[in-house]
Design a protein around this nucleic acid. Sequence first.
DNA 1: ATCTTTGCAAACTTTTTGCACCAAT
DNA 2: ATTGGTGCAAAAAGTTTGCAAAGAT
Lengths: 152, 152
Amino acid sequence: MAEAGTERTERIIELLRERGARLTNARRAVIDALAMARSHLTADDLGVLVQQSAPDIHISTIYRTLDALEHLGLVDHVHLGHGRAIYHLTDQPHQHLVCEGCGAVVEVPDSTFAQLADQLRQGYSFTIRPSHFAVLGRCADCAGVGKIASDH
Amino acid sequence: MAEAGTERTERIIELLRERGARLTNARRAVIDALAMARSHLTADDLGVLVQQSAPDIHISTIYRTLDALEHLGLVDHVHLGHGRAIYHLTDQPHQHLVCEGCGAVVEVPDSTFAQLADQLRQGYSFTIRPSHFAVLGRCADCAGVGKIASDH
DNA sequence: ATCTTTGCAAACTTTTTGCACCAAT
DNA sequence: ATTGGTGCAAAAAGTTTGCAAAGAT
C-alpha cells in the first residue's frame, strides 16, 4: 500500500481550495485513491479502496465527492459499457482505449486524436471533448480471439 | 406513421432466418422500428414505438430481442452516458458523434476513422471496433455554450 | 411435437435524493 | 456561527432473470 499524501494529491487539493471548495476526509481519500491508482476506477472501486482506511465513508458520499470534484474540473469520467463509469484525475490528459475482450484500459496521449479532431471540426463542426470518450476495440492480446466477449 | 415491412426490414428478416432464428412479432416489430427510425433509439424508445401497434410486447422482450439480434449480428449498440444504450441496425455501418450539450447523435462514415484506426493498430496493437464507439463532444449549435450540460 | 420466445413480476446494479446531523471554514 | 458535506435509508433508472404459458417451426 502506497503512502498517502503524495505530491500529486497535494497539488490537486491546492486547486480544490483555490476553487473555493472545502477539504473533507472523503475528498482527500478519493483524491488520494485516484492519484495512487495505476488503473482507472469505478465509483464502486473507489468505495472499496477508500473504505479500507475509512470504513464510514459511504458510497453515496463517493458519488457526491466525484460529482463535486468533476464540477471543480479536477476529475473526469468516461463511460464504459454497461453504464459503469470510470473516473480519473484531469491533471494528466489522455484518451482511453477500452478492450472489449478483457476490459483493459489503454491510455494514449491526446495528440493521437489531433487529426481526427481537426477532421471532425472541419467536416461536421463537431468539437470532440478530449479525455472524455473511450474508443472500443480489442487489445493485442485479445485481437486474435474471434468472439466479442460478453458486452451485455 | 410510415408503412411497415419495408425492403430494408425484409432484408434483415431474411438474414435472421438464414442464421437460424425464429421470426416473431416482437422481432419483426423491433426490426421495423429500427429500420424506420431516422435517429437512434434506446430500448425504452423502442418499447414505446413497438407498443403503439403491439401493446402486449413487454420491455423485457425488447431487451431480449435486441440481445438476440445483436448475437445474430443484425443490430449493434453504442453506450452513451448515464447507462443508456442506443441501438441500430448493422446494415449501414457508421460511427457516432454524440453532443454532450443537446444529446444529438451525428453519424459519420466509417472512413473518417480509417487513419486513427491505422495509427492505433500500429502504435498500440489496438484494433478499434467500427460502429461501436461514440465520440463525445459538442455539435455546432452547442459549441459556443460554455458549460457542459448535465452529464450526470 | 419440439424447442424457442414471450409476458409478467420480481430481482439486480448503478446512481441519485431527502433529511437530519456533523464538520470545515 | 454559518454553510456545505456526510451518513443513512430509500427511491430511481436501466437492465436482467425465473418461470410457466404461448408461439414458431
